[in-house]
Computed example of a mutant assay.
Amino acid sequence: MSEKRIIIIGDELVAGTADPRRLGWVGRVMSRTPFAPDQHVLSLAVPYDTTQGLVQRFATEVVPRLGRRCDNRLVISLGVGDIRGVRLSAPRTRLNLANLLDQAASHQVGCFVVGPPPLPGVEDDQLAHFSRACAEVCARRKVPYVDTYTALKDHDQWLSDLAAGDGLPGQAGYGLLAWLVLHRDWVSWLLGEEGEHAGVPTH
Rank of each mutant, 00 (worst) to 15 (best):
L74G: 12
V46S: 11
Q108K: 11
G53D: 01
L95C: 08
A45D: 14
T51K: 02
T51N: 06
H40Y: 08
V122A: 04
L100Q: 00
N99G: 12
A36S: 14
L119M: 10
N96A: 03
A98H: 04
Q56P: 03
D102P: 01
G27D: 12
A45L: 11
D124T: 04
D124M: 04
S31H: 04
L97S: 13
I83Q: 13
T51G: 06
D124Y: 00
G24E: 08
D38N: 06
V46P: 07
D49I: 01
L100S: 08
F58Q: 01
A90D: 13
R84S: 12
V55I: 07
W25I: 03
I76P: 12
V75M: 14
L23K: 15
R132M: 14
R32N: 11
T93D: 03
D19C: 04
H129M: 15
R68H: 10
V55K: 04
N96F: 00
C111Y: 07
W25Y: 10
R22E: 12
L66D: 05
G67T: 06
L100A: 03
L100Y: 00
P34C: 04
C138A: 12
V55Q: 07
R22V: 09
A135G: 15
G110R: 14
V26A: 13
S89K: 09
R21M: 13
F35M: 15
C138M: 03
Q103T: 07
G110A: 15
L66R: 05
E61L: 04
V80H: 00
V55D: 05
L74P: 06
D82N: 12
W25S: 01
R68S: 11
D19Q: 05
S131T: 15
G27I: 13
L101A: 04
L42K: 00
L42S: 07
D82I: 04
G24R: 06
S77T: 08
C134N: 11
H129E: 15
F58H: 04
R92I: 01
L78Y: 07
P64M: 01
G27P: 12
A105D: 09
D124C: 06
C70D: 06
C70E: 09
D49Q: 03
T51S: 07
S77H: 10
D124L: 00
V114E: 06
R69S: 15
S77W: 08
G110Q: 14
L74R: 06
A36P: 00
Q52H: 07
R28K: 11
V113C: 13
Q39T: 10
V80Q: 02
G121W: 01
L95K: 09
G85C: 07
P117Q: 02
A36D: 13
V86E: 14
R28D: 14
E136D: 14
R65S: 13
R73T: 03
A90G: 08
L44S: 06
V113I: 08
Q52R: 13
P34M: 02
P64V: 04
L42W: 02
G115I: 03
S89L: 03
G110K: 11
L66W: 00
L54D: 09
G115H: 11
W25A: 01
G79T: 12
Q126F: 05
P37M: 02
V80D: 01
V26W: 13
R84Q: 08
S43H: 06
A104E: 02
Y48A: 15
R140T: 05
S43Y: 05
S106P: 01
L95Q: 11
L127M: 10
A98V: 09
V41D: 01
A104R: 03
D125A: 13
P20M: 09
R57C: 00
